[in-house]
Write a protein that binds this DNA or RNA. Structure first.
Lengths: 109, 109
DNA sequence: CGGTTGATATCGATTGTCTATATTGAATGC
DNA sequence: GCATTCAATATAGACAATCGATATCAACCG
């Protein structure tokens, strides 16, 4: 099994898509929110975050746009595309399927 | 996200340990039961199953013993060790933690 | 005896996360 | 104004686990 704060392979995309569903955010802000909401259970490392964002953009599920914050820092702000919303729905469904299936194995005897 | 019958990296050990908690079984029989219980959501491929069994044995969580079935076929029957029961408890807890954390991200807005 | 089947095994490819390091530009300190 | 620090993005390389494909072996079948 994964280390305590390790994110299971495949679930990061779901977490990112869901976070962007609420509102556009830049990379680090996405990671911060996931860590905060899960009370530290998931800690999204930069080395996982950016490749994941690039994959999602490549696949057309999110689009990034450079902008500048009030504090004057340049950030790349991401938002969901229409395809991304569809993908989020699909991944939620898939996640529910997996949780249900594991539950069956754990609870059936 | 994973394909419908793909097993999330890290969950296979949990599924195997739980299956062996109920009764000793040989490799293929473990895979068959997981596939059956999950109604095909998880299909444990031989190329994943045997390496996983070898890892678990290496780590001392299960022990395998060659035997021969009524039908005369040689099989390696596995059973949980005491350490394996502890590990199962830990992995169940870890899984619950992950499910809960993902749930928070999906449901919090 | 040749072919099929069931069970175990292993190799190489793939994929996604992690650690570590690099780069950039702006704010900060003196 | 120059050096330092810092926040944000980026990428390379290590690593781990699953998968597809292939192999072996023994029993059974016809």
């Amino acid at each position: 099994m994964a280390q305590p704060t390790e994110i299971l392979k495949g679930t990061l995309a779901l977490l990112i898509l869901r976070t962007l569903e609420l509102e556009p955010r830049h990379g680090v802000s996405i990671a911060d929110r996931i860590e905060q909401i899960t009370k530290g259970t998931f800690s999204v490392k930069a080395g996982s975050l950016f490749p994941a964002l690039h994959r999602l953009e490549q696949e057309g599920f999110i689009t990034g746009e450079w902008s500048v914050t009030d504090a004057g820092r340049r950030v790349k702000s991401y938002r969901l595309t229409t395809a991304g919303r569809q993908q989020l729905i699909a991944e939620k469904k898939q996640w529910a399927r997996i949780v249900s299936a594991v539950g069956l194995v754990l609870d059936t005897d």
